[in-house]
């Protein structure tokens, strides 16, 4: 977010020492408040691929109750979501579609690779049709290993996304397709 472009009246970037300081502080302050809010209401896109999707559904069910943390709003449309949980094996046939869905998500967006298949290909890594990890297609923020991970592990993974947001580790994303 560039505050200088919004007509707030701050001087442009790199003009003089004090104004950049003000700009940086205000910018960082607003961003950290926004990130705090984002971290508490991540909306995942409903995107189940394989076995892990069942555990993802279970995480949303009554016993594990993902909504305790504000993460339960699974959106069918990627345009309304900011977290993609890649739950399952990504095949060569699915890979371009997965990329499309990622591209359709608005910024800022985060990706969580759930399960061995999404992390690195898992037990199917040697297959002729399986992508060896979803991080070869889209950038991944948090990896949750397991085959499949338990719902607790998934919740922990999403909490890690939240923690990273609070620590402002996801601010810069060089890879943005």
């Amino acid at each position: 977010m560039e505050l200088t472009d919004t007509g707030v009246g701050l001087p442009a970037h790199g003009q003089s020492e004090p104004s950049t300081l003000i700009k940086g502080k205000v910018h960082d302050g607003i961003e950290s408040i926004l990130d705090f809010c984002r971290g508490n209401s991540l909306w995942p896109v409903t995107f189940g691929l394989a076995c892990c999707a069942i555990e993802m559904m279970t995480a949303g069910s009554a016993r594990y109750d993902l909504s305790r943390f504000g993460f339960e709003v699974f959106r069918p449309s990627p345009r309304q979501a900011d977290l993609m949980i890649v739950a399952g094996t990504v095949t060569d046939k699915m890979a371009p579609l997965l990329k499309t869905i990622y591209d359709q998500m608005p910024e800022p967006k985060y990706v969580l690779a759930m399960g061995g298949c999404a992390v690195c290909g898992g037990p199917f890594a040697d297959s002729y049709s399986v992508v060896q990890g979803v991080d070869t297609i889209v950038p991944v923020d948090v990896y949750v290993p397991g085959c499949p991970p338990r719902p607790e592990a998934l919740i922990d993974g999403i909490l890690k996304v939240r923690a990273m947001l609070r620590d402002r580790k996801l601010k810069e994303r060089p890879f943005n397709a």
């Binding site: 991080d135 889209v138 950038p139 890879f175």
Partner: peptide, 14 residues
């Protein structure tokens, strides 16, 4: 099977 590059991963680059 066609040879697959093992880790051409963008997030690794990041």
């Amino acid at each position: 099977a066609p040879k697959r590059e093992r880790f051409p991963s963008p997030s690794w680059d990041r």
